[in-house]
Design a protein around this nucleic acid. Structure first.
Lengths: 205, 205
DNA sequence: ATAGAAATAGGGTATTTACCCTATACTGGC
DNA sequence: GCCAGTATAGGGTAAATACCCTATTTCTAT
């Protein structure tokens, strides 16, 4: 089994290599620190497994994964991430990943994941699997309307319902209605969470 | 030299441990996966060096660092992070860290950093040092105390004054006092502005 | 045409915030 | 010793929020 490992942190790569070598599960044909290099190696050598970090400089593991899918290469992808955000997992699997592993689980589950993915299966931890299920069922609820995004943009700028109403020529009570609906959709209870969401999702700049 | 390592990713810990053992630079008395455990070990054994990840669940490496400083323990801290934002570095050093290392540099520079920090020095990479210099020169005098930063971190997570008080073992009224003082210092009038500030300044991760 | 969603906006209430005041205790600097 | 700054925490009030409810209009898709 030919394996390639890509992660921009040398220390993480070292850990992964040691783990794979100790388990004698295959041979590592390359370990690289960027998505760009990973893609070049994969194109040239078409390894069986590519273990890719999602967040790597310019070209992400997700992006490499999409390219592999688009080219129809036989290389199967296990994506690694730091924070296991269900939205990211959803994106990863839709990008064509065969396995998804938070780095915190890598030590315990990587070898298992490699075996499953190599034999044609899909690897996600059970807890993430069920979380993903409910996320996908409710996914539509996380979609905000243009008006709702507009409202939370104003909120994240620090405006009150009254001020937002005046700015948009609607009643403060309507602003409150939008606000409450967004809170319910996203499962938030405080303005602070909304502001964080708006900034992180790029709704408010 | 007694060393403790804290990182919530087993694979990273494994890499760090292998590195430190290969360099025969000291003995690792503990490797843990949370800030809470790190703090317990440090309190009990007062190691020479603590290598702490900044982002770890509830109790961050930054927080542990503050506690070490507050208690006047001899343990010297090297903080590790994923992304090297200059604002985060500034916070880290103000929180009492003796060394700061992005994980991408860990493999090459950790041993050097341990030596420097252990002999009383401060370790930051040269490029970060100069960047930090110009950042501090241009930094507006929005000076917040450690406690104030801690409070607004909790606020930006969406906690109420009451919840923050319970978490930090102080009265909700005291939390309100800190909050009001910060608002006055920064000229803010709404929680939303505070959250944005905390996220953009790297106070809340 | 009709169901469904989105946007509008009112009533009502409990909780939370923002900000005013005072006051004590501890710390470091001069 | 004394002052400035920080952390603590109480009393108080007005504003804002979070969330419950109903109801109208408008637009879109089947």
């Amino acid at each position: 089994m030919k394996i390639i490992v890509a992660d921009d942190h040398h220390i993480v790569r070292q850990g992964l290599l040691a783990l794979i070598q100790a388990a004698r599960v295959g041979s590592i044909i390359a370990d690289v620190d960027s998505g760009k290099q990973a893609w070049q190696h994969i194109l040239r050598h078409e390894p069986d497994i590519a273990i890719l970090d999602i967040t790597m400089g310019e070209v992400s593991g997700l992006n490499v994964c999409q390219r592999i899918k688009a080219r129809g290469l036989k290389t199967r992808v296990i994506l690694l991430t730091m924070h296991s955000d269900i939205k990211v997992i959803d994106n990863a699997l839709e990008a064509g990943a065969h396995g998804y592993l938070p780095k915190s689980d890598a030590f315990h589950s990587l070898i298992k994941a490699i075996h499953i993915v190599h034999t044609g299966g899909q690897y996600i931890s059970d807890s993430h699997q069920s979380e993903l299920q409910s996320y996908r069922n409710n996914k539509a609820d996380f979609e905000l309307t243009i008006r709702e995004k507009e409202i939370i943009h104003h909120i994240s700028l620090g405006q009150t319902n009254k001020e937002i109403g005046e700015a948009l020529f609607i009643s403060a009570k309507t602003v409150d209605a939008h606000r409450t609906r967004v809170m319910k959709k996203l499962g938030f209870k405080k303005t602070a969470q909304l502001v964080r969401f708006a900034i992180e999702e790029g709704i408010s700049l």
